[in-house]
Design a protein around this nucleic acid. Sequence first.
DNA 1: GCCAACGTTGGC
DNA 2: GCCAACGTTGGC
Length: 140
Amino acid sequence: MACWLFKSEPATWSWDDQVARGAAGEPWDGVRNYQARNNMRAMVPGERGFFYHSNQGKAIVGIVEVCAPAHPDPSTDDPRWECVDIRAVRALPRPVTLEACKAEPRLAGMVLVTNSRLSVQPVTEAEWAVICEMGGLDGE
DNA sequence: GCCAACGTTGGC
DNA sequence: GCCAACGTTGGC
């Protein structure tokens, strides 16, 4: 199973907003970047991702699950754009900051570190495990 | 608030 | 198809 990372500015859509949606989840709409869209197209329901707060917080704060495969983005009529739905799974006991990721040698190749502008990113299994450990989870 | 990095657009 | 101009993102 592939792992992912979703970035959001908390002022626009925060982890708390995501949690408030509960099991119904929320379309991850508004993405207007081909690489990010392609990543969402590759997602399969049940796969998990990290939820990252950009700008304010700059930390991975929770884990989400893809609950609907890619479908047309409801926020536009442009057929080029698609999105998946995600739902909150759990918060990380300890948020993992961008600073901490940069300081961890095992995460040197992580997209969040090397291309911070990509809003929907792939995460390797190894990176997933390291961040779970840093965040206070044994594995997930 | 600044600015560097990056992606997209559009003229040629 | 190239590339300059522009807009946006996001760390600092």
